[in-house]
Design a binder for these strands. Structure first.
Length: 374
RNA sequence: GGAGGGGUGGCAGAGCGGUCAAAUGCAACGGACUGUAAAUCCGUCGACUUCGGUCUACGAAAGUUCAAAUCUUUCCCCCUCCA
């Protein structure tokens, strides 16, 4: 087995697990900060590690353009290149098939991107994506897929999913098995149950080290997403990690863990850190808002990140208003730490058989809102 | 004392007879952000409003005109150069 996954405990549909990679163990449920271009924006890798993150996400498309997979390989792989010795999962470029719709041409063979950097043409196929992720030395390679846009008609979703399944086959065939490394297949099918089932069966038949649920959180809304998550994780092999791609808000993650998902990634904590939004137990806070101007309190009393330990809301507000990089750094740090505390809390709750209580408290505080704290 | 230039919304700065409650930028206020084309993007930003408008506004006052931020006169400030 290339990538060992151990389920330690279950609570309802939720699972507590350990994923063993060459670069270390990932405890699940896990949240992976996004480091698209070989960096978690505004964070030192050692700081990311200090938040408790055990695995990062990198991106095939972006690293292929700059600095190029060959260079990263020459520099000793992505871990060494970016000074992150823990596990790395790389997205295959599948999300860019959707997000860069205007800059790419799609065919059965693969995708041709016009680089968003300089317009140059770059071809990406399942085989090519596997080769790049191999050169990056990614612990978890993602199969190349097409992230189906939302909304999609049944026919569109079916056609898109079927191609992704053919690409999954090709990805699996091109992937080179190594100890401590693995490849995940990606389920598609939009919001259609029978398509999700077909996709799950196809992927199981091919056989992967883990299974991702793709094509969600693309505009359908939480209610629709949860409807899919009520059945989708259960369609995937029980003994392998399940990864919900690109999700999400804190309550998305809690809801998904309750429905049997083990892994997450999302730009939300990092991007929001750059756009003045901080996540807290009492819901999101926009630190730019005038109400924080003279607030001497820490953002979250119970948080142990540098922002909360050493600075007032008034100071962060001031930094943010002045467009200071420190505001971005501290908010990003706090947000990643918040996500890590959340997933650690979920893991502990499963371990201690008190997941329902944990969730009750989580939802109660989120509903209470930050204002109530004052 | 002489010559010239200028005073516009919180700030900077366009406009130079009607389409001007006044471009644009900044500031301010609020919102969005989900496998990162994002330290980004989107609103609001004189006052009231039954949301159709109404009123008060472009240094001050008086005029010309159907109509003035825009033209004329006087006054009050500011800046530059020369003595």
């Amino acid at each position: 087995m290339a990538l060992k996954y151990e389920i330690i405990k279950k609570s309802g549909k939720s699972r507590l697990g350990k994923l063993y990679t060459k670069h270390g163990i990932v405890n699940t449920p896990a949240f992976m900060p996004v480091g698209t271009c070989g960096t978690v924006k505004a964070m030192m890798p050692e700081s990311v590690a200090a938040t408790g993150a055990e695995i990062l996400l990198g991106n095939t498309y972006h690293l292929m353009l700059r600095p190029g997979a060959d260079l990263v390989q020459k520099m000793g792989g992505l871990h060494k290149f970016m000074n992150w010795d823990k596990p790395i999962l790389t997205d295959s470029g599948g999300f860019q098939v959707m997000s860069l719709t205007g800059l790419r041409k799609l065919s059965e063979d693969g995708v041709t991107f016009s680089s968003h950097v300089d317009g140059s043409k770059h071809f990406l196929s399942p085989e090519k994506s596997m080769e790049i992720q191999y050169k990056l030395d990614s612990n978890i390679t993602m199969a190349l897929d097409e992230c189906t846009p939302f909304p999609a008609t049944y026919e569109q979703a079916k056609k898109s999913m079927e191609m992704s399944m053919r690409w999954a086959r090709r990805s699996r065939d091109a992937f080179i098995d190594r100890d401590g490394y693995g490849i995940f297949g990606i389920q598609q099918g939009s919001v259609f149950e029978d398509l999700r089932r077909f996709s799950a069966e196809k992927l199981s038949e091919i056989g992967f080290d883990g299974y991702a649920i793709g094509g969600l959180a693309v505009g359908e809304g939480q209610e629709a997403m949860f409807k899919v998550l009520d059945y989708a994780p259960g369609m995937l092999p029980e003994d392998k990690p399940r990864y919900l791609m690109g999700v999400g808000r804190p309550d998305d993650i809690v809801g998904a863990v309750l429905r049997g998902v083990d892994m997450f990634d999302c730009v939300m904590p990092t991007r929001s850190g750059r756009t003045a939004q901080a996540f807290t137990a009492y819901g999101p806070v926009n630190i730019r808002n005038a109400r924080h101007r003279e607030d001497p309190r820490p953002l979250e009393a119970e948080c142990d990140c540098p922002l909360c330990k050493n600075y007032s809301r008034a100071y962060i507000h001031h930094l943010q208003k002045c467009n200071e990089v420190l505001a971005v750094m501290l908010l990003t740090w706090h947000n990643i730490r918040y996500y890590q505390r959340l997933t650690a809390g979920l893991r502990q709750a499963i371990a201690e058989d008190r997941l329902p209580e944990f969730c009750d408290e989580f939802y109660a505080k989120q509903a209470q809102g930050d204002i109530a704290e004052i």
